[in-house]
Write a protein that binds this DNA or RNA. Sequence first.
DNA 1: CAACGTCATTCGGTCTTCTGAACGGCCGAA
DNA 2: TTCGGCCGTTCAGAAGACCGAATGACGTTG
Lengths: 263, 263
Amino acid sequence: MESVVEAARGRKPEEVKSAARVLEVLELLGVQGARLSLAEMAAAMSVPKSSLHAILRTMEARKWVDLDPSGTRYGIGLKALLTGTAYLEGDDVTSLAGPVLDALAEETGEAVHLGRLDGTHVVYLAKRESRHALRMYSAVGRRLPAHATGLGKAVLSQFDHAEVQRRLDWPLERLTPSTVTDPDAFLAQLAETRLRGWAVDDGENSVDIRCVAVALGGGQGMDAISCSAPKSRMDDARLEEVAQAVTEAAHSLSTLLKRLGQH
Amino acid sequence: MESVVEAARGRKPEEVKSAARVLEVLELLGVQGARLSLAEMAAAMSVPKSSLHAILRTMEARKWVDLDPSGTRYGIGLKALLTGTAYLEGDDVTSLAGPVLDALAEETGEAVHLGRLDGTHVVYLAKRESRHALRMYSAVGRRLPAHATGLGKAVLSQFDHAEVQRRLDWPLERLTPSTVTDPDAFLAQLAETRLRGWAVDDGENSVDIRCVAVALGGGQGMDAISCSAPKSRMDDARLEEVAQAVTEAAHSLSTLLKRLGQH
DNA sequence: CAACGTCATTCGGTCTTCTGAACGGCCGAA
DNA sequence: TTCGGCCGTTCAGAAGACCGAATGACGTTG
């Protein structure tokens, strides 16, 4: 008889409580790099300590979380590493993209990413490093707000305005002084992107990084590829040049995927 | 009243059943690249379909598993990608190892790995690709039997014979014709490794790949680094040369870790 | 066309887990 | 030392998950 509480939290009664909590623990430890104590996690999740205790014991026994030497702070365990990479191996887009990304990285000499829209964020699925000493930081599995990335805008530009408004969290979070947070300006950018065929990020999530991105799948996918570089190596002329290369790579990858889908 | 069953399975009663099942699902979908139906998973886990159904619904709602277009086969979901990379970022060894691995890869020109012993297997935590066109396949998160890898033998050589016998599953699994499966021969190899300071894998997990590995942490860690190459590029003389480079890299990384631990 | 196999899904009684409060250990402050 | 705060841990009542059998939906085969 906690229907009031459940309704207030918006949880469906079809959820298995401890299953959901296991996943919440993993997500909590995943977004924070830091280690957390049982009490801290219980507070963050609004769950009784005693309930969480039993769950963490189960997870610890299976090495999905581990305790630091002092025995009081939990972190992600070794077993968790297996699943993430399994997602990548089982995914058609990621496994087909390898050679295309290699070629694009080779051609441009800059950092190349494959990303996927997941809710309001973009997840990096694959990357290729730049050849230059000055590199941007990124990592597979990392999440960035979609509205502040080239990858995100490339995918979002495929939807109409109403759909975009439904998918994002408003107001848009500001990451740098250049982040576009005004709704009208943002939607105008998406319209421009749709016409042009490629999206631009001009220092909107990392100061000094410019990025060009193109969506995959011919208008209905959640994936995009991008090429990023410091402003010092990416003036307007170079941006157009890179945009051509990214567009071609996106087309050839989309074609590969289409063949796979038909078969 | 299932104490008999529980005892027969060796499960502690302190485990939370659905929590353990969530983890089992993730591990099952993780080792198999393939997608599985609910019925297949229920059979593989010896769990009633109806119970698993509720759990999978919970996991699907949170994108930890996803259904293929037909709606009948489950695979790992996008959220699972987050945790694996978080483990790597939060780990001292992995985050410190980067520059050392870069340098070793640069110096040898061959594939370099950082691995950790987990039970009977070794998990790759980081890798650097070879510069050559002919490359070995490997991936962060992948697990290989410890007894058939240089990394595993480097770590295991730190333990005495009784400890090794306790830690491995006997009889040793054969992966290639060269895999050492005889207990005496295997223990003799470890003794040799201990004296020499570095371990060798001569086509024991992949035909045609030779590998040199050195343990980190000065005798009490679970980690090791290695350098692998096809036999065609790794004759006995080259092996000794590479072993020197790997040993030096391991020492400098161990020193870095010791400083961190003291502080 | 019908019968079958396989699949996900539902349902209510039973049994497990969840819960909140109380406990014991540990550290730093007074 | 003694106190206070915080940690993980335990326990018995209360709430919810688990299970097996039955159902419905699909695609395939005879």
